[in-house]
Amino acid sequence: MFSAFFSVVRRELLLAMRRRADFLTVLFFFIIVVSLFPLGVGPEADTLRKIAPGVVWVAALLASMLALGRLFYNDYVDGTLEQMLLVPQPLSILVLGKVFAHWLVSGLPLVFIAPVMGLQFDLDGEAIIVLIGALMLGTPILSLIGAIGAALTLGVRGGGVLISLLILPLYIPVLVFGAGAVEASASGLGAQAHLSLLGAGLFVSVVLAPWATAAALKISVE
């Protein structure tokens, strides 16, 4: 079972290396969206510091949404997905491998670039560390939940817009706890409660989301 997981991860990473531009696009989308806010809101450091966690998180939500379209689409078009349904290993394990690899190339870069974004918004060191921690725990949840939407809208016309309608409401808890962690640490409450809730959410979604995604893939490929 683990070998199936790792071989899927390796394959996905290899494919991603060949299409580096796709994932750089997502990263730059994130950077541009975050950088637009000071232009829209104004450069006062106090305001920026206040809105920073929310802005970074909303941008992360949108960026992860943007990357989702490619999660299953290529495999769906060239027939790999149908082969995956026939493999003796449970489909949910393969899905988990795909989602993990997808997160490595589209979610993890956001976590690494977030400190720079935090500096743009005049966040202090502690807030930046909390922001990184929250993103580290939260972005995998985004990929896991998003995979369900990507599987459901596979091959559907207007799927790209549709997926945001399906998935963004489900992202709300991640947004609340993720942005809340930074705010709570800034206000002196401590981010521990928020981060533990994010961790619990990650655990639950690792268990449940691949299973639901596998069911959705079976419906879509049938």
Binding site: L152, T153, R157, L162, L166, L170, A212, A216, I219
Partner: peptide, 22 residues
């Protein structure tokens, strides 16, 4: 929206059902 976007009624029924459960 999901129900309206999928043309095959059987697939639409199953996909929306799964979405409702999620």
């Amino acid at each position: 929206a999901l129900g309206a976007a999928i043309e095959d009624p059987r697939r639409a029924a199953k996909a929306t059902g799964l979405l409702a459960l999620v």
